[in-house]
Design a binder for these strands. Structure first.
Length: 479
RNA sequence: GGCUCCAUGGUCAAGCGGUUAAGACUCAGGCCUCUCACGCCUGCUACUCGGGUUCGAAUCCCGAUGGAGUCACCA
């Protein structure tokens, strides 16, 4: 059996769109699943859109995503060059070969003549006008230096068919396909042509790409046939949508891999989520490592209809990844976000991490979860009233005074020991532990909700700051 | 508009002629609990419609409707 070769062929635009990344991921998974080779080819023929450093963005995104290419501009596998602009010179000869073989022909039609072909909607189909030119006539005009173009010669009738790996049988009437331009008047290939030539030359036998090519694929096949090349297998993928009508696109902003990283998503979670968008594993487990994805990936599970991107679910999945992190891993990932909050350099990040891990779904939530620590000041004492707990301001004040007295000389300021201390105090006073802890937490933070309990807050704040805040709150209550 | 393709809850989706139509996210309620989370439990919500085929259709066929893609000297 032939070895599977797939490719990802992005344009270096400076960012990696989520939809492209998914296509890339599937091409990678399919290759790896079948022990094949995954090739990276840079399609930079569109010089106008060329962005400096954009190729590096592609490398770094793939790296972060855990997708490793076997061949590419930086990893020669003998099928190079892997950058399209370095392949410019070979397309014209292939086009000429195709003309010889009858799969294409020279066209000298002017822009004006082409315009007359347009219907009232501005849609034109070339009428094969130049196909009837004799070989001599063509040569004469070529010699005269006339501007020309090379067009594909699509049969006028009949149907073209192929089997798509996900969509099944596709058949398109030949009369609906135009004789597209293969070589432009400047001698450069169009994308369609370059793609076919490159894929063939690079031995790509499994072409995995977006559905936008589903109906033009028969044209590509016609070229393969005319050249006498073996047709590749095709796997077309439905788009990722922003909502039922709109495709997820860079125009709407936030659809780039980098944007999600900035918002505090973990690369692994993003990859995991997009793997699930448009494909579903056999089992019920959704949190999957790259290894598991490779192992479980299967064309069978790819869906044909477009799928809507659901950030809420990706967020949840990201939360699952965060919960599975060790304190060290979390601190490392969260450092930029902690440094970007009011808490920077003031608290022990590891202690903070323990509280944050179960409470944060994306790292971007960190500042808002943690800033309250530095926002302590005058607050509304009505918070101390708690019906269910049977707490009034008086009870709260008594508790706080007792706590202050009890902790005055206590030095082992850790969550665990403070908790024991609190329990003991409650027993001594003959009250519910909540009547101790709740007022204590409020007194320390002045915040209705906090990420953690009184003793955890106390540990974080340290003894002197805790005692200071306790005193402050007591006085506030005594007013 | 022509052509190609698609159609299960709000979202991702399982399903492949006989099922109480999975599971996950979201949402609601509950338990746990010093608040918030986490965790656990429960619940809500779906086969687009209409015709066939069949003893039997979410599953097969046809049509309608809706949606996507495509019709460049762009990629």
């Amino acid at each position: 059996m032939e070895k599977v070769r797939t490719r990802f062929a992005p344009s270096p635009t400076g960012f990696m769109h989520i939809g492209n990344l998914r296509t890339c991921l599937y091409a990678y998974l399919y290759a790896k699943k079948n022990g094949g080779t995954f090739v990276l080819r840079i399609e930079d023929t569109d010089q106008e859109r060329y962005v400096e450093g954009a190729v590096d963005v592609i490398y770094s995104t793939l790296k972060k995503a855990g997708i490793e290419h076997d061949e590419g501009p930086d990893k020669d596998g003998g099928y190079g060059p892997y950058i399209q602009s370095e392949r410019k010179s070979l397309y014209l000869d292939y086009a000429k070969e195709l003309v010889e073989k009858g799969g294409a022909y020279y066209c000298f039609c002017s822009k004006e003549r082409l315009d007359t072909l347009k219907d009232d909607k501005g849609i034109a189909k070339y009428d094969k006008h130049c196909l009837s030119l004799s070989k001599e006539e063509v040569q004469k005009r070529l010699d005269a230096g006339e501007s020309y173009v090379i067009r594909q010669n699509v049969p006028a009738d009949g149907v073209s068919e192929y089997e798509d790996m996900v969509f099944g049988h596709i058949s398109v009437p030949n009369e609906d396909m135009e004789d597209n331009i293969l070589i432009k008047s400047d001698g450069m290939p169009t994308y369609n042509f370059a793609n076919v030539v490159d894929d063939h030359l690079m031995g790509i036998n499994y072409v995995i790409r977006g559905v936008e090519y589903l109906s033009s694929t028969p044209k590509y096949n016609l070229m393969y046939d005319a050249f006498g090349w073996e047709r590749p297998h095709y796997m077309h993928l439905s788009p990722i949508m922003k909502d039922a009508q709109r495709k997820l696109s860079k125009r709407y902003g936030d659809a780039n891999f980098e944007d999600f990283i900035e918002k505090g998503y973990l690369p692994k979670a993003i990859v995991n989520y997009i793997a699930l968008l448009g494909w579903s594993p056999k089992g019920n487990e959704e949190k999957l490592t790259m290894e598991q994805l490779v192992e479980q990936f299967d064309v069978d599970g790819i869906s044909k209809s477009p799928s809507i991107f659901d950030e809420a679910k990706m967020r949840w999945l990201n939360g699952e990844y965060i919960k599975a992190m060790s304190v060290d891993e979390f601190v490392e990932a969260a450092k930029p976000f902690l440094d970007n909050s009011k808490v920077k350099d003031k608290y022990d990040y590891r202690a903070l991490a323990k509280l944050l891990i179960p409470r944060v779904e994306i790292l971007g939530e960190i500042p808002e979860k943690v800033n309250f620590l530095e926002e302590f000041g005058e607050y509304d004492t009505a918070m101390f009233e708690h019906k269910k707990m049977k707490i009034t301001k008086e009870i709260a004040l008594n508790s706080l005074l007792a706590i202050e007295e009890d902790l005055k000389d206590f030095e082992e300021w850790t969550d665990e020991l403070l908790k024991q201390k609190g329990m003991a105090l409650a027993e001594k006073l003959g009250c519910k532990s909540g009547q101790i802890f709740l007022p204590f937490r409020l007194a320390l933070t002045g915040a209705q909700t906090t990420p953690g309990g009184a003793t955890e807050m106390a540990e974080l704040l340290g003894k002197s700051e805790s005692m200071r805040r306790l005193r402050f709150s007591i006085e506030l209550l005594q007013k």
